[in-house]
Design a protein around this nucleic acid. Sequence first.
DNA 1: GTCACTATGTTATGTTGTAACGCTCACGGT
DNA 2: ACCGTGAGCGTTACAACATAACATAGTGAC
Lengths: 143, 143
Amino acid sequence: MRHAEEICRAKGTQLTPLRRRVLEALAAAERPLGAYDLVERLGRERRIAPISVYRVLDVLIEAGLIHRIATRNTYLPCNHAHESHAATVFLVCSSCGGVDEVTSDEIAASLTGTAAATGFRPGARAVEVEGECAGCQAAASPR
Amino acid sequence: MRHAEEICRAKGTQLTPLRRRVLEALAAAERPLGAYDLVERLGRERRIAPISVYRVLDVLIEAGLIHRIATRNTYLPCNHAHESHAATVFLVCSSCGGVDEVTSDEIAASLTGTAAATGFRPGARAVEVEGECAGCQAAASPR
DNA sequence: GTCACTATGTTATGTTGTAACGCTCACGGT
DNA sequence: ACCGTGAGCGTTACAACATAACATAGTGAC
């Protein structure tokens, strides 16, 4: 996880103590966290203002170290090296809130194809899909 | 647009005056509207509380008459007959905020394939893609 | 030393979405 | 006619998510 430092150096952004703490909190959480979850978790001794958390989140997203789940207003650390040609798919479990991050050339291709028909040019190739993860399916239908 | 009435009758939900007004407001708008946009537009004479608008939006979404764009917190009327096997793709223009709705069997298939690898079962097959629409591309790069 | 820049703090506010509860009206049963 | 029930919406208050505006502290260049 300290490979984040390298990425920051490469991009010219600093990995300050606060930014590190946010990153660590997200990495330590088993599920994506909301901004105010972070406010709570970081503010044990000394309260951190929401705006500060949001600023840090912006920087980390910009650096590609974390992702934002728009359908949930939550944030999670990034695990992948993102190859520019692939699409990123977030499999969001409606039941437990967990998110799995996978990449797919195939989806990127069909997305591009579909968009091209209308002249639309996709920017960030990230999509979020609601559904039920394997774990929750098993829990929901005990045999 | 009064084919909405048929859908409602078929589903057993009523198309009340308020619901009709919300639907008409969305249809009349050139772009997707936020819930509070609707509060303003409907409340010319008599103020409608946000909660009422949200309730109506929920019903209309449930009936399949409108969609919600999660990345923008906006709502737009639905144009398509939604075939259950296809995926719905919302092409969201980051520049003008306009949304184009297209369907794709191909994307549905690659989505299912990708998800299957992790045991994830997709629910609603709707994805939102950020990008730039044809109109805004033309406006941005005048030759 | 001073200037510029980056990071963060402080305070307040804007935007989006819900909870809890009550009123009214239409409809069905008796 | 009376009553119960449920759908639809009003009213009030609040929760959750996000940002604006301005101040302060450190760091490095000159």
